[in-house]
Amino acid sequence: MASDATIAHAAPVIAPRATPPTTLQKMARRRSTIAFLLTLPLLAVIGGLVAWPAAYAIYLSTLNRRMTAFIGLENYAILLENDTFRMVIWQSCFFAITAVILKALIGFWLAHMLHHIPSKGQRVWRGMLLVPWVIPPALSTLGWWWMFEPSYSSINWLLAIFSVPPVPWLGEMWWARISVIIVNVWYGAPFFMIMYLAALKSVPDQLYEAADIDGATGWQRLRYVTLPMMRNIISITVLFSLIVTFANYDIVRVLTNGGPRDLTHVFASYAFQVGVLSGNIPRGAAVSLFMFPLLAVIAFFVLRGINERTKEIGA
């Protein structure tokens, strides 16, 4: 290394005054030390903005309502005995799973459509289809709320032109649930589309050519070429979306506020209601952390699968 050479070359000149490097100097010269120092800002950010809040939330969830005594896992036990919270678990799962499946299917279909548009016109369509994902969800949900609004829904106004009776979009259980999912899918599908489009573009044409030579049908090309090549991106996108959708707050908050009868609450909106608005912060923390272990396990297996497949491809 140049620096070592310089030191070696200079050694005879300064030899009489040279002292052996201290432990600190040795440490500073080590690559691992330098790497650690360079990553320190990032570690500080992760520690301060991720690890500390998460640890503090876990700590909060073990306190009593007044936050004066440690009660262990009592808040979780109380929640599990609560009718409303059990319903929130069911709704959150229904909301997240349905929305992610729909987003993935619509995103996949849109990506395919776009992939087959000549590249000249593709950019315009890509830009337009990304618009829902670019608008802040609280704002776009407000737009949807105006369309669903109980008394003056513009959608109902349009339906009335065709003599369709008004739909209580936000006032009736299933319509309210469907409305929340529609908005989430509208907002999230472009993300899937853009990810899948990138994945489609990275599939080598030779594979399709080989499939054509073998006489593969369109379905077989999709089943045996496209999907296996996209498997990693599908896994990571679904995982990412599942986590984000489980944590969704703004759509429910703006559109239904959890109603009617708590039938559209998800973990985040219910946690806010219990924790901040009702003044029971420890129980609110317990609500928000409820899915953490399950999502962590799902994330572990999905990421492990991706790693294994990456290694297989590399080998």
Binding site: P150, S151, G171, N257, G259
Partner: peptide
């Protein structure tokens, strides 16, 4: 009552009155 009152917020009743409904 109107069949959608279960989803009304604090502004819905105001709108109902102001609109003459």
């Amino acid at each position: 009552l109107p069949n959608d009152v279960w989803a009304w917020d604090d502004a819905s009743n105001n709108r109902a009155l102001i609109s003459g409904r």
